[in-house]
């Protein structure tokens, strides 16, 4: 049995910091869409990469998803995945004032823009709270309406264990929902653990 990569205290701290990041991201997207965004309690868990779809199905449900990935680097490194349910683009286009006449390419561009706002606000705030540096690569489309279980096959992650931090955004009165998943390979978790310790020491 390996030692856990994060202690319970470190996980608790990360969950609360993810909560603060989620709040920032929720407020940013609420402003862009002019809608009330419902937030949920963040999840923090370690999973082997092949079990990520199963872990996500718990909150996302079954069905087709689209996904955007965005790598982040700095003293905090990993991948952000933004996973959207079926209805994502109709609702988004509608909200942004397009008349349902948005072509597929523009829809996807919109999805990238929204992803960029959410990931930047959420992870940026997490890094800030932890005194870590973070930069972002450009977001790219990872999956366009595929079954959830096939989400990561095309982009297999060569990691043994991934730290999964998940926050969810849901619009009231709409079917739009986005799941932001922060993935870190186990060899990047040590830097995060050290930052969490510094954060915890301030208590």
């Amino acid at each position: 049995m390996n030692a856990p990569l994060l202690t319970q205290d470190q996980k608790d701290a990360l969950q609360e910091i993810a909560n603060i990041g989620m709040g920032q991201a929720g407020a940013s997207i609420a402003k862009v869409l002019d809608e009330f965004v419902q937030l949920s309690i963040p999840r923090v868990l370690f999973v082997p990469p092949e079990e990520i779809p199963v872990a996500l199905a718990l909150t996302i449900g079954e069905g087709q998803v689209s996904s955007v990935r965005q790598a982040f680097h700095g003293s905090m490194r990993g991948e952000a995945l933004l996973v959207y349910g079926d209805q994502r683009c109709n609702d988004l286009a509608d909200l942004m004032g397009y008349d349902g006449k948005l072509d597929h390419a523009s829809e996807l561009e919109l999805l990238l823009d929204v992803s960029n706002v959410l990931a930047g606000a959420c992870l940026g705030e997490i890094a800030k709270q932890l005194g870590m540096t973070i930069g972002f690569s450009a977001p790219s489309l990872m999956a366009d309406a595929v079954p959830l279980e096939s989400l990561l096959q095309a982009e297999a992650l060569p990691w043994k264990t991934a730290l999964l931090v998940e926050v969810n955004f849901r619009l009231e009165q709409r079917s739009f929902a986005c799941h932001l998943v922060m993935l870190m390979p186990e060899n990047e978790v040590a830097a995060l653990a050290a930052a969490l310790d510094r954060f915890l020491e301030s208590f």
């Binding site: 989620m22 929720g26 407020a27 009330f36 937030l39 709270q129």
Partner: peptide, 25 residues
Amino acid sequence: VSADIQEKAQERVLDLGAIAFIKKP
């Protein structure tokens, strides 16, 4: 005391009788 800093969240809780809203951290 919440990380949910949407203006509408603040309005809602004040409407529901909270005396103040303090954002996290």
